[in-house]
Amino acid sequence: MMAYMNPGPHYSVNALALSGPSVDLMHQAVPYPSAPRKQRRERTTFTRSQLEELEALFAKTQYPDVYAREEVALKINLPESRVQVWFKNRRAKCRQQRQQQKQQQQPPGGQAKARPAKRKAGTSPRPSTDVCPDPLGISDSYSPPLPGPSGSPTTAVATVSIWSPASESPLPEAQRAGLVASGPSLTSAPYAMTYAPASAFCSSPSAYGSPSSYFSGLDPYLSPMVPQLGGPALSPLSGPSVGPSLAQSPTSLSGQSYGAYSPVDSLEFKDPTGTWKFTYNPMDPLDYKDQSAWKFQIL
């Protein structure tokens, strides 16, 4: 009977010793046993002879290597770790002494450095960015050149030099007046198309007034536009458009034309069986010896 009264063996659950049927240790109110408190290391007290050895090595170098620390530790009968900690504390003490010396050398008012006064946003004049500046400075420094007289040679050079070769001289006033084509001369031969040399188009003023001019072949195509416009036809070669000034309004060009419109200028042929003959000019830059190549039959 006494065997049943004795408590059973101890069981360990999660490293906790349980005594038989008792489960009081598993209750929430019972805390787990805490780790033992780490003991504080005792402070090391250095003797005068030990301090002399350490100070002598510190005077040589503030960062001794492990071999120098072990050698000193053997002399003063201390572990190497204590020597390492002593050098660490000695360097910190040396830095603190240097900072105190710097503070003593500075004057009393030198510690508080005078800061520059901050400028207020409204006091300083700042350039306004509302208006974009002129990058080319046209509004201040540029002045347009004065327009020359209508009959000045410089204007003629600016007008005619675009179309004339570089080897030719500017046309005088008398020749510029001949550039304007007359109405009857352009409409006299509506079906004849003559190819003149390129030099005649640039230099010869008579080429624009003769039936064999460069633009005589364009007349049949330009004249039928007159009834559609409801007024006189516009002429690209009329009046002052080739003269001194090219800047004319469309209203000033509306009254200039080749001449009176005639039914002869239409595109319809009077004789459907007729042929169109292209007159060959020996001055043509295209060297075609066979003139029969310039004739064709309209079917």
Rank of each mutant, 00 (worst) to 15 (best):
T45V: 07
A15S: 04
S199C: 12
R115Y: 00
L229Y: 05
P165D: 01
K60N: 08
V13Y: 03
A35T: 03
H27D: 04
M26Q: 01
A181W: 15
S245E: 04
D24E: 10
E173G: 11
E80W: 14
K270A: 03
L229P: 02
K93P: 12
K88Y: 13
K270Y: 12
G259C: 10
R91S: 14
Q106G: 03
S203I: 11
D65G: 12
R119Y: 09
Q106C: 06
A198D: 02
E52W: 13
K60Y: 02
G274R: 10
P135T: 06
P263G: 09
I298K: 00
L146R: 08
P149L: 10
S81C: 07
C132P: 07
S206H: 10
T123P: 08
R91I: 15
A15C: 12
P21C: 10
S167D: 04
T44C: 13
S188D: 02
Q103H: 08
Q97I: 04
E53C: 06
R69G: 12
I162C: 00
K289N: 04
Q104I: 05
L267M: 06
P31D: 06
Y195R: 02
M2R: 04
Q297R: 09
F87Y: 13
D24P: 15
V23P: 02
S12L: 15
A156V: 13
P170Q: 11
Y191H: 01
Q105H: 09
L78K: 01
L299E: 00
S161Q: 07
F278H: 00
F46Y: 10
Y67A: 04
A3C: 08
M5V: 05
Y261N: 01
W163D: 00
L229N: 01
P144D: 01
L237W: 12
L222V: 02
P36T: 07
L286Y: 05
S254A: 06
S257G: 05
P149A: 06
F296C: 00
A233N: 12
L57T: 10
G178D: 02
P36K: 10
S254N: 06
S210C: 11
L229F: 03
P33Y: 15
P220F: 15
T159L: 12
K38C: 11
T44M: 15
S128K: 05
P127W: 06
K120Y: 01
S238C: 15
Y142V: 07
A207W: 09
A29Y: 08
F58R: 13
N14W: 15
A196L: 11
V242Y: 10
K118A: 04
P197Y: 15
S169E: 08
S241C: 10
Q101Y: 06
M2W: 12
A114G: 02
E173R: 14
D134P: 08
D271S: 11
R95A: 13
S203N: 01
R43E: 14
C94I: 09
S22E: 00
F296P: 00
I298C: 00
Q84K: 05
A29D: 02
